[in-house]
């Protein structure tokens, strides 16, 4: 199963080291392939170094694509983390 959705970055500093660490950890147990698309750039969301390279700022949109058995569940977890501003 492949699903896509758009999420807004709500935390002040954008996808910096701490949120990127959190995302990578959150996806460690997930069995599906997850990618982020930001300003025409698509990267592997399981790679913290790639997330940092996006330099994604507050109030911008990221498209998340998840493909695999637990795609829906993974997407929900990610959406929740973005919505909760990664605890910041």
């Amino acid at each position: 199963m492949k699903i896509t959705c758009k999420v807004k970055i709500k935390n002040a500093l954008g996808l910096h080291a701490r949120p990127a660490t959190m995302i990578a950890r959150l996806l460690q147990s997930s069995k599906c392939a997850v990618s982020f698309t930001y300003k025409n750039e698509t990267i592997n969301a399981k790679s913290i170094m790639s997330i940092l390279m996006l330099a994604a700022r507050k109030n911008t949109l990221v498209t998340i694509t998840a493909e695999g058995v637990d795609a829906e569940e993974t997407l929900d977890k990610l959406k929740d983390a973005f919505d909760k501003k990664f605890g910041e």
Partner: peptide, 12 residues
């Protein structure tokens, strides 16, 4: 923490 996580990065 971020450094430790980067050690598991597929790029690394």
């Amino acid at each position: 923490d971020a450094h430790i996580e980067m050690l598991k990065d597929p790029l690394m």
